[in-house]
């Protein structure tokens, strides 16, 4: 019984400590450069700003794909330079690609990072459930004596 209480208490404390740690980290944006095709594992949701510059008349295709839902978030045939933004609605891997004849690089910056609602629900749910269970166990033990 004590082991169960220790596990529950640890879960509650860890859940509480997770938020300040994450708050510190999320203020820093993620910056990556994409040459041809690349997957990026983003540890939070956010907004991805894409920008590339190429000579006028250079045509290429930019594509952002979300393997979680199997949807293409952005697919555009561009000539010249390009600026765009994509909402990354969940954490996890995303796939970025540039299809082109001449080499074009795209810079990706993930800004406005925040934990998504689904993740927050998991944290609040698990934390609250453990706290509630712990409280019930303590109450029952207190009553017996």
């Amino acid at each position: 019984m004590r082991l169960l209480k220790a596990v529950l208490l640890s879960v509650v404390i860890m859940t509480l400590l997770v938020f300040p740690i994450e708050k510190n980290v999320l203020t820093q944006p993620i910056s990556e450069v994409i040459l041809v095709e690349q997957g990026i594992i983003v540890p939070s949701s956010g907004i991805a700003m894409l920008s590339s510059s190429a000579d006028d008349g250079t045509g290429y295709t930019v594509r952002v794909f979300d393997p979680e839902s199997g949807r293409t978030l952005l697919e555009r045939n561009v000539t010249g330079s390009f600026r765009g933004r994509v909402m990354l609605e969940h954490s996890g891997p995303y796939y970025f690609s540039v299809r082109t004849m001449t080499p074009v690089t795209i810079a990706v910056r993930v800004i406005n990072r925040y934990p998504s609602v689904a993740v927050l629900n998991i944290r609040y749910g698990l934390g609250a459930m453990s706290a509630f269970l712990l409280a019930v166990i303590l109450l029952m033990e207190g009553r017996r004596k």
Partner: peptide
């Protein structure tokens, strides 16, 4: 805590 902060602060890039 260490696992969590390690996971939040890294963004892995992979080729496919």
């Amino acid at each position: 805590i260490t696992f969590f902060s390690g996971l939040t602060s890294n963004d892995t890039v992979f080729m496919i």
